[in-house]
Design a protein around this nucleic acid. Structure first.
Lengths: 210, 210
DNA sequence: GGGATAAAAGTACGACCGGTCGGCTGGTTT
DNA sequence: AAACCAGCCGACCGGTCGTACTTTTATCCC
């Protein structure tokens, strides 16, 4: 049973296009990204794109899905290797900052970009983005709740509140690091959450000192 | 000495255009905003816009300046009426959240939108945005430093660090309130900074309890 | 009244947008 | 070898973009 070479080629193209789209969208935005530019930057023709996605919107949705996969693969999964509890929460913050700092994507973060781009633009694309954000928030809340349940965070910690602060410190980092100074931003983002967790965590040995 | 009616009319038009541009940019972005749409939504002709600004870029810069004025007028100035120190810092946070919640701008915050839009797009527009952000950050840092100097915040508070967290809690609020749930977001943003300030402020009577 | 002047509209243009269509290419199946 | 198929391309469509040039309209000064 051999794989159909034509379909394999199509899959390769699709993957390459989506990876480029994710990266470009962090610079020009998901809507600002034009099909002509995207095709050019990949050395394919515009009509070649329409062979895989019937409209720009369909490609945008596929791009969002690809970005979510990438995020899961490069940020979430590595962080989940840390032991459950406050250390896992901290690992997620560090994995995220490392992802930004490594400049995997030129604009830093796909979702940070498109969330602001679509926050006031009703439609399917916005709905999909909101769904990803909800899932991500739920994950962070769950990790926080687990840390509380394990007794590693004070019992009066509200997971939802902590998740909000977690997200705030991370998202601000990606914007500031691109718009102002990268080298001075990441330490601030790191310390912001670390101080917060230290204040809530009875056992200081679970977290790095600085 | 009477005012030239022709110039007065021009000023009125310019102001109306810029106000509309600021508002629309929070939805469509500063670049996504097209001159045709802008002209249509104001009932003027596209070419009428070029009587006042010679290019789109020039209008974008003017829009940024106008947004800064609006921010100063509706957020900064009212907050500065609070007494110097930690109360002023808190007043600034609340004034900002009130501004977002009142939906003065449909997308919530002009600068939050354009900062993410231009974070990875070199050019004059980006430079201007970065300058505004630097000034704003300097203001918050100054207020934090004043609170420390007044003995209202612990002496080991780093103003730069606190200013980062201040900004993070505010900016995340505007995105979340638009993309997810407005009613549940603002309390989180409020509490995030309030808890932080309470932890750093020896005199609990200077801040609201909740 | 009659220029002078500023604001605004009208018109036109080239570039690019998202999208369609017919056809070529090369691997797969029979 | 023939029929078929998915991937991909060049040419092209109507529409909108930002921008330039010219013309009309409203106001001011003499």
């Amino acid at each position: 049973m051999t794989i159909d070479g034509r379909i394999a080629r199509g899959d390769r193209t699709r993957a390459a296009v989506l990876d480029a789209a994710v990266a470009l969208a962090t610079e020009a935005g998901l809507d600002g990204l034009s099909l002509g530019q995207l095709a050019n930057s990949l050395g394919v023709s515009k009509s070649g794109l329409f062979a895989h996605w019937r409209s720009k919107e369909e490609l945008q949705l596929a791009t969002i899905d690809r970005a979510r996969e990438q995020w899961a693969e490069l940020v979430v999964t590595p962080a989940l290797r840390a032991p459950r509890g406050v250390r896992r929460l901290w690992a997620l913050h560090e994995a995220r900052l490392a992802f930004y700092q490594a400049a995997v994507l030129p604009g830093g973060c796909f979702f940070a970009s498109v969330e602001f781009e679509y926050k006031a633009r009703p439609g399917v694309v916005r709905d999909r983005i909101a769904e990803v954000l909800r899932d991500w928030t739920a994950l962070v809340e769950r990790l926080a709740a687990e840390a509380v349940a394990a007794g590693e965070l004070r019992a009066d910690v509200a997971p939802r509140q902590l998740a909000y602060e977690f997200e705030a410190h991370g998202m601000t980092a990606v914007m500031r690091s691109r718009l102002l100074a990268p080298e001075s931003t990441y330490p601030l983002a790191r310390r912001a959450l670390l101080d917060r967790l230290h204040a809530l965590c009875p056992d200081p040995t679970l977290l790095p000192e600085d």
